[in-house]
Structure formats: C-alpha cells, structure tokens
C-alpha cells in the first residue's frame, strides 16, 4: 500500500471516473454512483474529492463540453491518469490478497471452547 492512500469515497469516485471514461464530471459522477450503487453523494463532496484526486495525480482534467443546461458553462472533464489506474489496481490487488486470506466460513464450532 506504499503511497496510495485512498479513502473509501475516493476509491469509489476514482472507479466511477474510470467507468465513465471521457464523460466524467461532477454531475455525471454523481448520477453514475447513484445508478450503480444507489448511494446519494453530495455534489460538493464529489467536487472536493475530484480535486483532491487530481492534486494527488490520480486524475487529469480538461475543460470542455458546454451545454445549455449549464448556461453555456463548460464542464471540467476528468480522466484516469496512469498513476490512477495503477492505484486502483494496487488497491484491488491488496484487497483481493487480504480477502483470500480470510478463513473459510468454517462450520467448526470448536473455536472458543
């Protein structure tokens, strides 16, 4: 886990950005999370996390894609950087490794006796 400190929400958002590919920005991430997990995240929290992830170098961003709903304002579109992808993989591996070590749901009631 050296270097990659990802919080739970950070991990979730990082993954969502990866899923959305070229279309990841605040509202899109919000809705994707809602659709995929049913979880309502506050938009400002998403912004904060996105910005933090960019600062850490896991995400890259550029401005683009103005629409009328936005009053002609552009979106800040995020993409996964190489480090970001590495980080997800690292986390996933880490988790899998730990998961694998879970003892099977042993029906051995001897424990504790």
């Amino acid at each position: 886990m050296k270097g990659y400190h990802l919080g739970e929400l950070e991990e979730l958002i990082l993954l969502t950005v990866g899923i959305l590919d070229q279309e990841a920005y605040g509202v899109a991430v919000l809705q994707e999370i809602k659709n995929q997990t049913g979880r309502k995240v506050n938009i400002s929290a998403i912004h904060t996390v996105l910005n933090r992830l960019e600062e850490k170098g896991f995400l890259k961003s550029y401005m683009g894609g103005a629409t009328e709903e936005r009053g002609g304002r552009r979106k800040r579109l995020f993409t996964l950087s190489a480090t970001g992808r590495l980080a997800i993989e690292e986390v996933k591996n880490q988790r899998n490794k730990l998961f694998d070590q879970l003892p099977p749901l042993a029906l051995d009631f001897s424990y504790g006796q």
Binding site: L30, I43, H47, K75
Partner: peptide
C-alpha cells in the same frame, strides 16, 4: 465555471 455549471445542471435535473 465548473461549480456553477454543475449547480445549474442539477437545478434543471
């Protein structure tokens, strides 16, 4: 720009 845009978009949603 990004914040206001998102806020507007959510408003219309």
């Amino acid at each position: 720009e990004q914040i206001q845009g998102d806020a507007y978009e959510l408003f219309y949603l």
